[in-house]
Design a binder for these strands. Sequence first.
DNA 1: AGATACTTTATAATGATTCTAAAGTAGTGT
DNA 2: ACACTACTTTAGAATCATTATAAAGTATCT
Lengths: 136, 136
Amino acid sequence: MNNKENFIKKLRSSGLRPTRQRIEICKALYDRKKTFHFTIDDLNKILRKKSKEKISLATIYNTVYAFKNKNYLKEISLNTNKTYFDTNVSNHHHFLDENSNRLIDLKNSDVGKVKIKRKIPGKKIKSIEILVRISD
Amino acid sequence: MNNKENFIKKLRSSGLRPTRQRIEICKALYDRKKTFHFTIDDLNKILRKKSKEKISLATIYNTVYAFKNKNYLKEISLNTNKTYFDTNVSNHHHFLDENSNRLIDLKNSDVGKVKIKRKIPGKKIKSIEILVRISD
DNA sequence: AGATACTTTATAATGATTCTAAAGTAGTGT
DNA sequence: ACACTACTTTAGAATCATTATAAAGTATCT
């Protein structure tokens, strides 16, 4: 995804109508070089700055969860009061800087192979998420 | 910690007055064979069943966070609306059963050594937490 | 253009957590 | 045992993220 036409295609192809709001949200999220970690509140503030036509908070919630369901966004497990999302949906991990509370992507290749030696009968492993807390 | 006298000693030694409420909470949390994963709501329900003398919700919050600060409890990173705590404060990891939403301890020795190959200048690693999602 | 289903929106509702400030209690010294 | 002080508990209110509601708007199809 990298421009308006592509966003429209992507939205259509996944059964989401390309509304002004969804396109603006795509731009805010995916017109970036680096992956982006954010809360709904972060995104709301960014959208308010970017354009004067307001997008309702409800729509931001709706859209973010729609994108999450389509696997265009990933939810990150942290114990904070707000929910964090990540535009990097590939298999990867995170540093959490405890001083700034900022997240940093850790590529899968930055982490040695993780072996889980224990099995739970009848259960399959769906994902392995690593959170590395760092500070000064 | 394993009986009333020990709970009282432990509380005193950490500068927490051994009140009826704190002792009852200790019993609910630490008079167990297995480690215990819980939310404030879980703990509240357990305490209501155990004794008729009610402990206020505010006190349960106060006490759980006091215990967390004393390192008698650990907060667990999950993306759920409620905060989870763990009576196992040692270095370890978790399975999360997505069907039942239940947590299962993964001993450190159940996980092969995790190598973090990337370094962030000026930052030290404080902890490494692994969450393994499983389901049927 | 009209019909229809999908979207957006303001607003209300929910629910976990935190705050407040008054009443209660443990520990200390007398 | 008594009183003093600092720490605790508590009910209830306040906060804040998130979810629900239902009316108005819009994309898409024919």
